[in-house]
Design a protein around this nucleic acid. Structure first.
Length: 632
RNA sequence: GCCGGUGUGGCUCAGGGGUAGAGCAGCGCACUCGUAAUGCGCAGGCCAACAGUUCAAAUCUGUUCACCGGCUCCA
């Protein structure tokens, strides 16, 4: 007799084996949403035959686990449809991912986005027919025979470290797969194929490029609709579109990856820099500036020639080789070394807004997010080994303030360890890594480890901000460096009167100012908070002729106060001028007509609150002073 | 760099072997207007570049460049 339990419920079967679905039913757990079940914590198909007792739970399609199974099964459904439409297609891998699934396929000829509806229609046909999904366990050699004409599955099977593998079949399609899956295709209704792209087999660019089809599936039609809407909203926030609409920056064929900033984009960037400088002065930093182009020998000495050459640009001056800087550290070191330094000078925090150039492959360029030249809000901090923890903690504090309090981002922290291509000894790396770990743990900062992703000269703590679409962007980083100081004979005189080698911290907060702006544009959807808005106040005269003098008088006052204002000088109707100011996302619109001109007031309209009525200029300034503003 | 797609006036896009079109923006004129689009008119493009096929190319072919979606890489 087999005994099954779910919580305090129990059922018995007077047989040697039983189908899992029957157990689920007997325990009263079955309903239309159930697509799989857990037996002793292992997720399994409902059709699985069980020959021992144990704990059983139903997996519903609206649970995270169920959704993952649904999407995985949808990938199989798609594969079956593709096989019908494109016989002879071979299949790579087709997992479920965050927000959906993909399948990498090797198809004769090409599939384009225009073919997706056709594939989707075939999928609906199969789903409508309720194609059964069945599982079979095969010994490895049987499986190899079964998939003999499929090079991808053969490669996968060979690497599996188990005597048997499972194969899922639905109609003419069969796939090597761990499962579990929905019992039949009729469980799959709410799906959509999204896009098509190339992807290397097993993610290795040395391998063949397969065709990847992305899609998604949800438990309910509403959730699918919601998701599609979210993608469309994300498109509206695209910083490349908003950057054009709000006249912030542009990109040109003449300089791919080298963004051009327009006056309004510079207003934002300069405000960010203003904020950055104030914050750094408060925290004991001083600022330097080092050249764009430096002798190649410097880059050989720093190790960049050996480890970073492929990303660098080179040039020649008077027949001598030079390099365009991809990082600011060697320049900073030259500044440090201009004097003999004492332990009393440390920590020495040399900040630099350095414009660096890095060669990026053409296919990766993306608006402001991925460019070939950008400004790092860098600092190189020279400390004694004893100061590591305190200094790293202080930087983490700065990051937290900037990310959450000023900009309202969520972020996560990663510790990246030694990469393959790196310099230094194991002991140095171990010491550096444990110093960073210590700083993270003593501040109770949750973090994950990203093995092998450190810089070539040291491990790092990375800060990942989450944007409106849930994408994460690496911004801040804190890198511990035991290499450069030694390479450049950087020293300080200790209390003991002897020469010592300082530890160097490389760190950025914004990361790249250009990219940070891109993230902010998407984060705010162009509606920058008052302190950052490129145009803070739009003055809207009701009548272009008779109210212009007053409008100009107001603007002069705002200019004096250092506020960014514009007058709409067009001979248009008021409604039109308001609409355009709204579309430009200007925080405050000041309507001025006869009434205001006479009473020396302004009609205030706030972009999200609407008309606030007339008030004196003093009252309006008072209103502005209540706005969040970290540079006051 | 790789795979696929795209490239037409400032912007968004239609057209597609017979010599280029719309809406918005711009300019002009009229209206002088109170919180999300006033009307009429004018002007603006060697259809990404270069080669080729053709009597004829924006349209077909090839190459290059840029952009878009991914992959790999990355701040």
């Amino acid at each position: 007799m087999l005994v099954f339990k779910h919580g305090d419920k129990e059922c018995n079967f007077d047989s040697d084996s039983v189908i899992l679905h029957d157990v689920v039913k007997a325990l009263g757990l079955d309903n239309k949403k159930v697509i799989a079940a857990k037996f002793n914590d292992d997720a399994m198909d409902l059709s699985r035959v069980i020959s021992e007792g144990g704990n059983v739970e139903a997996i519903s399609v609206d649970s995270p686990e169920g959704l993952e199974i649904l999407r995985h099964s949808t990938a199989h459904l798609m594969a079956q449809a593709v096989l019908r439409l494109y016989p002879g297609t071979h299949f790579g891998v087709g997992p479920s991912i965050k927000d959906g699934f993909y399948y990498d396929i090797d198809v004769a000829g090409t599939i384009t986005e225009a073919d997706l509806p056709k594939i989707e229609a075939e999928m609906r046909k199969i789903s409508g027919a309720g194609e059964k999904v069945t599982r079979e366990d095969l010994a490895k050699d049987e499986a190899l025979k079964f998939f003999a004409d499929d090079p991808y599955k053969t490669e996968l099977i060979t690497e599996i470290d188990a005597p048997t593998v499972s194969v899922y079949k639905q109609g003419e399609y069969a796939d090597l797969c761990r499962g579990p899956h929905v019992p039949d295709a009729s469980k799959i209704h709410n799906f959509k194929l999204l896009s098509i792209a190339g992807a290397y087999w097993r993610g290795d660019e040395k391998n063949k490029m397969l065709t990847r089809i992305y899609g998604t599936a949800f438990a309910t039609p509403d959730e699918l609709k919601e998701y599609v809407k979210r993608i469309e909203e994300a498109k509206l926030r695209d910083h490349r579109k908003i950057g054009k609409d709000l006249d912030l920056f542009s990109l040109h064929e003449e300089g791919p990856g080298f963004p051009f900033f327009h006056p309004k984009g510079m207003a934002i960037m300069n405000t960010l820099i203003d904020f950055w400088r104030r914050e750094h002065v408060k925290r004991g930093y001083t600022e330097i500036k080092t050249p764009q182009i430096l002798d190649r020998s410097l880059w050989i000495r720093s190790g960049h020639w050996d480890h970073y050459r492929d990303n660098m640009y080179f040039t020649e001056i008077d027949e001598k080789p030079y390099a365009i800087k991809p990082m600011n550290c060697p320049g900073s070191i030259l500044v440090y070394k201009t004097q003999l330094r004492s332990y009393r000078d440390l920590p020495m925090r040399l900040a630099e807004l350095g414009l660096v150039h890095r060669h990026e492959r053409s296919g990766v360029l993306h608006g402001l997010m991925r460019v070939r030249c950008f400004t790092q809000d860098d600092s190189h901090t020279y400390i004694t080994p004893e100061q590591i923890k305190e200094e790293v903690t202080a930087i983490m504090e700065l990051d937290k303030y900037v990310y959450t309090e000023v900009f309202g981002f969520k972020y996560s922290v990663e510790l990246s360890t030694r990469p393959e291509d790196s310099m230094g000894t194991d002991e140095q790396w171990e010491a550096a890594e444990s110093a960073l770990r210590d700083a993270l743990e003593s501040t109770n900062t949750p973090y994950t480890i990203n093995p092998g992703d450190g810089a070539f000269y040291g491990p790092k703590i990375d800060f990942h901000l989450e944007d409106c679409i849930g994408r994460t962007w690496q911004c801040g980083t804190i890198q511990l460096d035991f290499q450069m100081p030694g390479r450049f004979d950087v020293t300080y005189i200790g209390e003991d009167g002897a020469e010592h080698t300082p530890v160097m911290i490389h760190r950025v907060v914004f990361g790249s100012i250009e990219r940070f702006m891109g993230i902010l544009i998407e984060h705010y959807a162009g509606a920058f908070p008052y302190w950052l808005a490129p145009v803070q106040i739009k003055i809207v005269p009701i009548n272009a002729a008779s109210h212009m003098d007053y409008a100009k008088e107001l603007q002069a006052k705002f200019m004096n106060l250092g506020l960014r204002s514009e007058i709409d000088t067009r001979d248009e109707k008021l409604g039109r001028k308001i609409r355009d100011a709204q579309l430009q996302k200007v925080p405050y619109m000041l309507v001025v007509g006869d009434k205001e001109k006479e009473a020396h007031t302004v009609g205030v309209r706030e972009r999200s609150k609407g008309d606030l009525g007339s008030m004196s200029l003093e009252e309006f300034k008072d209103l502005l002073s209540k706005e969040f503003n970290p540079i006051h």
